[in-house]
């Protein structure tokens, strides 16, 4: 049992009930509880209250649910909060809500149509474009989490993505955040073995691979003993 487990389960259940979960891929650190239920992962580091979902082709007209995700989340006691700087939208617990603690964000791959936060009418939400989401989209699997079929990235690709993305961190806390990303990936690297994660990264070329290589060097320096085992 980990913190906010009930709330996380309730969000997934509600999204499944309205038929929205089939459009969403769970990413970010909240995939770890899903992996934990399906794979013999022994150790779970858990350090975030943000649930991230990614959506493939958000402009596709089939992306809809009844009621919309917005309506359902509002009913559950969350409300959309837009960042004045980036215009990205995040569902945070309603001010009067006593039990809700998690926040939910929707992401997508940027493209020709989507360069800025994009509103999906059928789902009633705004998705924020973020690079290299396609790595997760192209390598998704469906796993059961407490009886709910949830689409998540394959563990090796999730870890490779996490290591690569750590190198895109910027700002005052960049170094610490990089280490946090690598810590998250470490759970999967230790479980699968580093060869699988490196193999996953080799499926991609160019900038993503070079980001991964850069991140992997730091990972090797940080956890050398674990890689020798």
């Amino acid at each position: 049992m980990f913190e906010f487990e009930k709330e996380f389960h309730s969000i997934l259940k509600n999204l499944q009930e309205i038929g929205a979960l089939r459009h969403l891929i769970l990413i970010g650190s909240w995939v770890l509880p899903v992996y934990l239920e399906n794979y013999p992962i022994s150790h779970l580091t858990f350090t975030t209250s943000d649930i991230d979902f990614t959506i493939i082709r958000p402009h596709d007209p089939v992306k809809k649910s009844n009621p919309s995700i917005h309506k359902q989340l509002t009913k559950m006691g969350y409300f959309p909060h837009r960042s004045p700087l980036t215009q990205s939208e995040k569902y945070i617990p309603a001010l009067e809500s006593k039990k809700n603690k998690l926040s939910i964000e929707f992401l997508c791959e940027p493209g020709r149509i989507i360069k800025n936060p994009y509103r999906i009418k059928g789902l009633g939400i705004t998705v924020t474009p973020l690079r290299y989401q396609h790595v997760l989209h192209e390598n998704a699997i469906t796993l059961a989490y407490k009886g709910i079929n949830t689409t998540v990235p394959k563990p090796a690709f999730w870890a490779a993505h996490k290591i690569a993305m750590s190198q895109l961190r910027s700002g005052e806390q960049a170094e610490l955040k990089k280490m946090k990303d690598l810590d998250g990936a470490r759970i999967i690297v230790n479980f699968l073995g580093y060869e699988d994660v490196i193999d996953a990264s080799q499926h991609y070329k160019g900038k993503f691979l070079s980001l991964f290589k850069k991140g992997w060097k730091i990972y090797q320096n940080r956890f050398p003993e674990e890689l020798i085992k």
């Binding site: 858990f46 350090t47 975030t48 280490m179 810590d183």
Partner: peptide
């Protein structure tokens, strides 16, 4: 959890 992860988590929580 490493100290770095803990610091990032705490800072994010304070910001939220």
């Amino acid at each position: 959890m490493s100290i770095e992860s803990n610091i990032v988590y705490l800072k994010e929580e304070i910001k939220n």
